[in-house]
């Protein structure tokens, strides 16, 4: 049972724009811990098995990024040791780890984005701002699977007349592959004329277009959207007054733990936790509903 993806695309998109935008922005350790923790949690909630497969990719990436920085940057006061007279500092190591955390959490947020913003939601959202562009996208998306099928037919037909792109010399293979692409293009362009006619036949371009969608903006969407906007403002404010600022060089700034700062940290946590809260709430409500039946 997935709850978050049933919200209006605008809400989902606003969330990811806020989450990814802010995650790219904040290098404060507290903020980094919050974003990676919630990105991992949402990944587990939404993608489960797939997420654990992806670990093989994330972990090496994380360490690669963490190691590279201290080798390049030699700033910082806390020197651990020297390699070829270049200082390896604690600051540089921590900075490397922080950057790695940021990048990995952005990638993780994107994988949740890919899971929830399906192509029709994307096209719907962009249809509002840029209808022609989103229509072009939609047509393109429709054509890709069709072209793949046709590619298969063409390669079989060509195989029978000796143009097998999977055997023979490298040159022969490249030649055959491009021959197949060439056939595909002729075929595709010829058919495109029909599609264009079909658009015209259905009145495309005669007046102002409206857009149809199956998405309905409910009260709950409005509430969550307002919530996202409010928390986004709070976090931008926090950034302006300097709460989120953190220096690694020449040495670390101090992490503040007074009430004001803790409240700001909480607001960040709350913003990024919205989908998880919705998932948990949805799960509980479903169980209650079931138990009453």
């Amino acid at each position: 049972m997935k709850s978050f993806e049933t919200f209006h695309p605008l809400v989902i998109f606003a969330f990811f724009a806020a989450a990814i935008g802010l995650s790219m922005f904040f290098m404060h350790p507290a903020y980094l811990v919050i974003t990676i923790f919630l990105a991992v949690s949402l990944n587990i909630a939404l993608r489960r098995g797939q997420f654990f497969k992806d670990w093989k990719l994330y972990v090496p990436l994380f360490f690669l990024m963490a190691i590279i920085n201290p080798l390049i940057s030699h700033n910082g006061k806390l020197v651990l040791f020297y390699i070829n007279y270049n200082a390896i500092t604690v600051e540089a190591i921590v900075y490397g780890l922080s950057i790695a955390t940021m990048i990995v959490s952005i990638i993780l947020w994107f994988s949740c984005y890919n899971e929830t913003i399906t192509t029709d939601k994307f096209i719907y959202l962009f249809g509002k701002i840029s209808p022609v562009f989103s229509l072009t996208l939609s047509i393109s998306l429709r054509l890709v699977p069709r072209f793949q099928q046709q590619l298969h037919k063409i390669s079989n037909a060509q195989k029978v007349i000796g143009m097998d792109y999977r055997s023979g010399s490298l040159l022969h293979r490249i030649k055959c592959t491009l021959r197949i692409i060439s056939i595909l293009i002729t075929w595709a362009l010829d058919n495109a004329i029909d599609t264009a006619d079909s658009m015209k036949a259905r009145g495309y371009g005669i007046g102002k277009r409206t857009s149809f969608s199956l998405f309905i903006f409910e009260r709950r969407d409005g509430i969550v959207l307002l919530f996202i906007m409010f928390l986004l403002m709070v976090n931008i404010w926090a950034s302006i007054i300097g709460t989120t600022t953190f220096y690694f060089y020449p040495t670390f700034s101090i992490i503040q733990w007074d009430l004001k700062n803790i409240l700001f940290y909480c607001s960040y946590f709350l913003l990024l936790a919205i989908p998880i809260i919705i998932e948990i709430k949805g799960g509980i409500e479903w169980k209650l509903l079931k138990s009453k039946m």
Partner: peptide
């Protein structure tokens, strides 16, 4: 429509 289609086709290719 035909311009849109050609761009969509070339991208899909």
């Amino acid at each position: 429509p035909r311009e849109i289609l050609i761009i969509a086709v070339m991208s899909a290719i």
